[in-house]
Design a binder for these strands. Structure first.
Length: 348
DNA sequence: TATCCGTGGGC
DNA sequence: TGCCCAAGGAT
């Protein structure tokens, strides 16, 4: 396999087929001298961590509309940013996003570092994101390796070792294709290929610009790569969520700054444990004395467990809660939005 | 190093 | 329906 021929073929494909994305400077504009805004590249890359383009896109547009520069974002209050992130998931990203914006604003004069090491030192930028911002915003010849690139390498070279053990090998293979020429376009071309052609299931090899180089295709079963080790089953947990209203307001709490849903607004809940909660236990764990009534339950899948929330609903008073308008629940993580809607189904 | 950390869409 | 998966990072 000739790496430089492969590169030329993939870049030519990208020149014709690059997806139009709100944070992207297309290959033609880039060739004409237009440069991507590091703030927008960084923001998009953080939002896209483990998140699909369709899910992240409206958040990207809302953030850049509301906070056009990194200094605007750095000056915002924590709660506003966390609420704007609600629904995107992996909320540590939002906490690190603010920490990073403030580091850039306060320690770097509002300008992103233009080296991979400088980017890597910022909160929330790991090996992937530092390499991606470096390549796309600063034309650094970094090795940008995400899940797409791992899959493309596993197929091109029919890597038999299963993920995640194969990660170092896949990264080495990707590094062998990096050149100083058009590093940002190269990274995005590889990821576009993985997202649209070299898909996890049903890859479109007939349309692949580098199919002639692909060992997995030659094997006849390209979709069997990358190999993966079996995953453990997800456990099931149970909790009680309390929907307490006071007129047209609902009682919320701010979750602790770290851990699951850290820093986010939430419904008051019991602990989450292996077994269901009896009525007596659920009343004992309630945030206030009130005429609690059962309002059904909701189920929600997290990364490592499935949660069933039994819902209790009441009208009343409580101490140490944040009273929030019923019509303004958008700042809640999805699991609590789901539970609140179930508990308030008679009102909403 | 292994585990924790959300969400929604596709099949 | 249940499982897989998506432009990963922090600890």
């Amino acid at each position: 396999m000739d790496p430089d021929l492969l590169r030329a073929q993939l870049l030519a494909w990208y020149d014709l087929n690059a997806r139009s994305l709100p944070w992207r400077v297309g290959p033609a504009d880039h060739a004409a001298g237009e440069r991507a805004d590091p703030y927008r590249v960084w923001l998009s890359e953080v939002m896209l961590q483990q998140t699909t383009v369709p899910h992240a896109t409206p958040y990207f547009l809302a953030f850049t509309d509301r906070w056009p520069t990194v200094s605007d974002l750095a000056g915002e209050a924590d709660g506003e940013v966390m609420a704007a992130w609600a629904g995107l998931g992996y909320y540590a990203r939002a906490r690190n996003l603010l920490a990073c914006a403030r580091a850039v604003a306060n320690d770097h004069g509002g300008v992103f570092p233009d080296t991979e090491a400088g980017l890597r030192a910022l909160p929330g930028l790991g090996p992937y994101t530092a390499a991606a911002v470096g390549a796309i915003a600063f034309d650094l010849a970094t090795n940008v390796v995400d899940g797409n690139v791992e899959r493309v390498m596993a197929r091109l070279f029919s890597v038999e070792a299963p993920l995640p053990d194969a990660k170092p090998e896949l990264k080495r293979l990707a590094a062998g294709l990096v050149r100083d020429h058009r590093p940002g376009d190269w990274a995005q071309a590889l990821m576009d290929l993985g997202a649209t052609i070299c898909r996890p299931k049903s890859p479109l090899c007939d349309r692949c610009p580098v199919a002639a180089h692909c060992a997995a295709r030659a094997s006849g079963a390209p979709d069997s790569y990358p190999r993966r080790t079996a995953k453990a089953a997800r456990p099931h947990r149970h909790g009680v969520a309390y929907v307490l209203t006071r007129g047209d307001e609902v009682a919320l709490v701010r979750r602790p700054p770290k851990g699951l849903l850290g820093g986010m607004l939430a419904l008051p809940t019991s602990d989450w444990r292996d077994g269901r909660w009896s009525d007596t236990e659920a009343l004992d764990a309630a945030p206030a004395r009130a005429a609690w009534q059962s309002a059904g339950e909701v189920e929600h899948g997290f990364t490592h467990f499935t949660l069933t929330l039994q819902i209790l609903r009441a009208e009343g008073e409580a101490a140490d809660v944040i009273w929030s308008p019923l019509r303004d629940l958008d700042g809640l993580p999805s699991v609590f939005l789901k539970a609140a809607r179930a508990g308030l189904s008679s009102l909403l």
